[in-house]
Design a protein around this nucleic acid. Structure first.
Ligand SMILES: [Zn+2]
Ligand SMILES: [Zn+2]
Ligand SMILES: [Zn+2]
Ligand SMILES: [Zn+2]
Lengths: 139, 139
DNA sequence: TGCCATACTGAGAACCGTTCTCAACACATC
DNA sequence: GATGTGTTGAGAACGGTTCTCAGTATGGCA
């Protein structure tokens, strides 16, 4: 098996979880995935959803994000290296590419002695919709 | 009151929590803060520690970090803008300065329409100690 | 100084997200 | 069909955090 194929029997339940996750662009929580999957597989249990999400993450087919201030983990079928933008008001999480300056990782490694560095970068701000609804005029 | 002074009665319990947090450089969890405070205020309850940490964070006197893959939040009395370095093996969290390239925040704001942007940057890697103990020779 | 309103505390219950347990089930192989 | 292995769903268990509430300390004021 390659890194791309998963060593999992592709049961209807797993297929449904994977489909829901691949169709999502909003970084749903496990509970949200569960709700969406249930529309298609009404009998599915939450344990199966949690298990499947965990397997997908372990197999590199999904990412798990834990965003500051939100207790529930969010899942992302976009496994390419990317960053996130989180609205402080409505909680929406969007993808964005904002690569670090070349050499910054190497610089950090050199300064600290850490090996195999990677990073997570999350921007926080007010999304256009929330900005419009919160401060249409000067406060 | 200014942004620096807290609008809290400085009870012995709160004083102890603040002292413990200011003395810590390891980004302790609430449970760890609780343990350390108890050595000095044996009767304190965990609710008081959680409440006080929450108040300090709300007042800008401490930061709360939720690091990927670790269920418990960590607290940091260093409120200056800084980044973090997390060892994937032992979980140690260290402070580091690795400022984003000038203009990157403005660029992200321009591309997305988000306002009031800030960011959190966490590096992941293997700390020197763990590296030494894990792979002294070629695997 | 004594009294009152207010804020704070600690024990424990409640809560929420997640993981575990286990009996029933599906599937492939013989 | 029998057998083994892996999967499922219900519910219990778990860990971190927040809530509730009766008792206590504090500060302001007569
Ligand atoms: Zn928003
Ligand atoms: Zn994403
Ligand atoms: Zn380490
Ligand atoms: Zn720090």
């Amino acid at each position: 098996m390659t890194a791309e194929t998963v060593d999992l029997r592709l049961t209807p339940q797993r297929r449904a979880v994977l489909d829901v996750l691949r169709a999502a662009t909003d970084h749903p929580t496990a509970a949200e995935v569960f709700d969406r999957v249930r529309r298609v597989q009404p009998g599915i249990g939450s344990a199966t959803v949690y298990r499947t999400l965990g397997r997908l993450v372990a197999a590199g087919q999904a990412l798990e994000l834990t965003l500051d201030g939100q207790p529930a983990a969010r899942f992302d079928a976009n496994t390419e290296r990317h960053d996130h933008l989180l609205c402080q008001s409505c909680g929406a999480a969007a993808d964005i590419h904002a690569p670090l300056a070349d050499g910054l990782l190497a610089d950090v490694a050199a300064r600290t002695g850490y090996a195999g560095l990677s990073y997570d970068l999350v921007f926080h701000g007010l999304c256009p919709a929330c900005r419009a609804s919160q401060a249409p005029s000067a406060p």
